[in-house]
Design a protein around this nucleic acid. Structure first.
Ligand SMILES: NC(=O)c1ccc[n+]([C@@H]2O[C@H](COP(=O)([O-])OP(=O)(O)OC[C@H]3O[C@@H](n4cnc5c(N)ncnc54)[C@H](O)[C@@H]3O)[C@@H](O)[C@H]2O)c1
Ligand SMILES: NC(=O)c1ccc[n+]([C@@H]2O[C@H](COP(=O)([O-])OP(=O)(O)OC[C@H]3O[C@@H](n4cnc5c(N)ncnc54)[C@H](O)[C@@H]3O)[C@@H](O)[C@H]2O)c1
Lengths: 205, 205
DNA sequence: GTCTAATCGTGAAATTTAGAACGATTGAGA
DNA sequence: TCTCAATCGTTCTAAATTTCACGATTAGAC
C-alpha cells in the first residue's frame, strides 16, 4: 500500500462527505472543478489527492460519484465502524451523545464515563453512562478505538491516562490544556477558544 | 510588522494558554524545554516561534512567564476582545452559550440567532436569542467580528450568506458541509465526524 | 473518421514548515 | 575571577506540501 500523505487522507474525508451528499442528490458525475467549487479546495489539489488512490477519472467527463466514493472509502475507511468512548457527560458531551449524524458515518459512541454520580447509570440516546473506574473494562469489552475528552481541563490529564491504560489509540481533546500521552497514541486538540482567537488574528491581516 | 508564519500564530495561542496557567500557579520562570514537556511541541520549535516576537528569553534561565505572555499577547491579540455571533441555539450552540471559559480569554458571545420561534427572545447566560432576520442589524450594533455556524448542514450556506452580508470577517463552521464565502472571509471548519475518522485512519498505520 | 475542447494525471518548481547544528549568552559555583 | 553547564536564538538543511505547467486522454460535434 502506497504511503498516502496525511493531509491527503484528511481531504479525502471531505471528498467522501461531499460525494455522499451529491449521490443523495442523484448526481452521477462530478469534475475536479465542480468539487473545487463546492469544497473550496483547488481543482489541482483534488486531482492530485485522488491520483494517490488510482486512476478513476475519465478525461473530458470527470469522476463517477459512486465509483470515486467507493474508491476513497476503500482506501481510508475500509468499511470500518469506529467505536468511540466519551469521557465527560456535560454540555459538550451531551451534545455529542444526542447528535444523530455519527451513525450515518460509521461512528458509534459505545460508552460514556462520568464522575458525577447523578449522571451515572443513565442512558442517553442508547449510550450508557458508567463511572470512570469502569472505563478499562468497558472499553475493552466494547472494542472502543478512540476516546473523547470532554471533562474540565483540570481533569483532562487524569482521564487521558485512563484512556491510554485502556488501550485507546486516539484521543480527541476538547479541554483547553495539553495532555501527555505515549507517542503511539494520537491526539487531536480541538480548543474552541483557540480556534476563535486564531481566526480573529488571521482575519486582522 | 514582521510577517509571522500562520502556524506560529496558532502555536503562540497555545503558549499563551499554557503561560496563563503557569502564571496562575505563581510560576515565574519557564524554559523552552519545560514548555515542550507541557505542550508536546518541540523545544526548538518553541524557541524559533518565540524568536519571531523578539528576544525575550535569558540564556541559562529561560523565559519570565509574565513577560513572555505579555509579549505574545501584544503581538497576536493586542488586548482585543473578540465579539462573536452564534447561529443556531441547538445542542452545540447551547453548550457554547453556557461555557464560562470564553470570558476569561477575551471572547464575548454578543448575540445568538435562531429560526425556532420557541427559542427566540430567551436569554441564555446573558446572551439574547434573536430571529435570524435581525442578524445584520444586531451584528453591526454589537460589533461582532466572528460568527459560529451551529445550524444543520442543510441551512449552513443560508446562514453563512447572512453572516457575510452582515460584515463578519471569520466563521467557525460546525456543520458537516463546506460553505462558500468571499475569500476575504476566513472559514475554519470543525467537523467532529471528520476529526474522529481522521484520527482513526491515522491511528491505523 | 477527424478535430476539438474539456478534463485527468503527473513530474518539476516553489513554498511552507519542521528539524538539526551550533555559536552566543548568562548565571552559578569553584 | 574563571570555568562550566544550561539555555537562548539563528542559520543552514531537510522534509512536507502546494502550485504550476503541460502532456495524455477522451467524448462528442461535425
Ligand atoms: N462547552 C463549550 O462550548 C466549550 C468550549 C470550549 C472548551 N470546552 C471544553 O470542553 C470540555 C467540556 O466542556 P463542557 O462545557 O461540556 O463542560 P461541563 O462542565 O458542562 O461538563 C464537564 C463534565 O465532566 C464531568 N467530569 C469532571 N471530571 C471528570 C472526571 N475526572 N471523569 C469523568 N467526568 C468528569 C463533570 O461531571 C461534567 O459532567 C471542558 O474542558 C471545556 O473547557 C467547552
Ligand atoms: N452536536 C454534535 O455533537 C455535533 C457533531 C457533529 C456535527 N455537528 C453539527 O453542528 C451543527 C449543530 O449541531 P447541533 O447538535 O447543535 O444541532 P441541533 O439540531 O441541536 O441544533 C440546530 C439548531 O439550529 C436551528 N436552526 C435551524 N435552521 C436555522 C437557521 N436557518 N437559522 C438559525 N437557526 C437555525 C435549529 O432550530 C436548532 O435549534 C449541525 O450542523 C451538526 O451537524 C454537531
Amino acid at each position: 500500500m502506497k504511503n498516502i500523505p496525511r493531509k491527503t487522507v484528511d481531504r479525502a474525508l471531505i471528498y467522501i462527505r461531499t460525494l455522499d451528499h451529491l449521490i443523495k442528490e442523484k448526481r452521477y458525475l462530478v469534475s475536479s472543478k465542480d468539487l473545487a467549487l463546492i469544497t473550496g479546495i483547488s481543482d489541482v489539489q483534488i486531482r492530485k489527492d485522488i491520483s494517490n488512490f488510482g486512476k478513476v477519472g475519465t478525461p473530458r467527463i470527470g469522476y463517477k460519484t459512486a465509483e470515486l466514493n467507493k474508491t476513497l472509502k476503500d482506501f481510508v475507511l475500509q468499511e470500518n465502524v469506529v467505536h468511540v468512548a466519551l469521557f465527560g457527560v456535560g454540555h459538550l458531551g451531551t451534545a455529542m451523545l444526542r447528535y444523530p449524524g455519527f451513525n450515518e458515518d460509521n461512528i458509534k459512541l459505545v460508552a460514556a464515563f462520568e464522575k458525577d454520580k447523578s449522571k451515572i447509570g443513565k442512558k442517553i440516546n442508547g449510550v450508557r453512562v458508567y463511572p470512570v473506574e469502569m472505563a478499562p473494562k468497558i472499553i475493552k469489552r466494547t472494542h472502543a478505538d478512540l476516546g473523547i475528552v470532554a471533562v474540565p481541563a483540570s481533569h483532562s490529564q487524569e482521564v487521558a491516562d485512563i484512556m491510554v491504560l485502556s488501550g485507546l489509540k486516539g484521543i480527541v481533546n476538547f479541554a483547553p490544556a495539553s495532555i501527555s500521552v505515549p507517542k503511539s497514541v494520537l491526539v487531536k486538540d480541538i480548543d474552541f477558544t483557540i480556534e476563535l482567537l486564531s481566526l480573529f488574528c488571521n482575519s486582522q491581516r
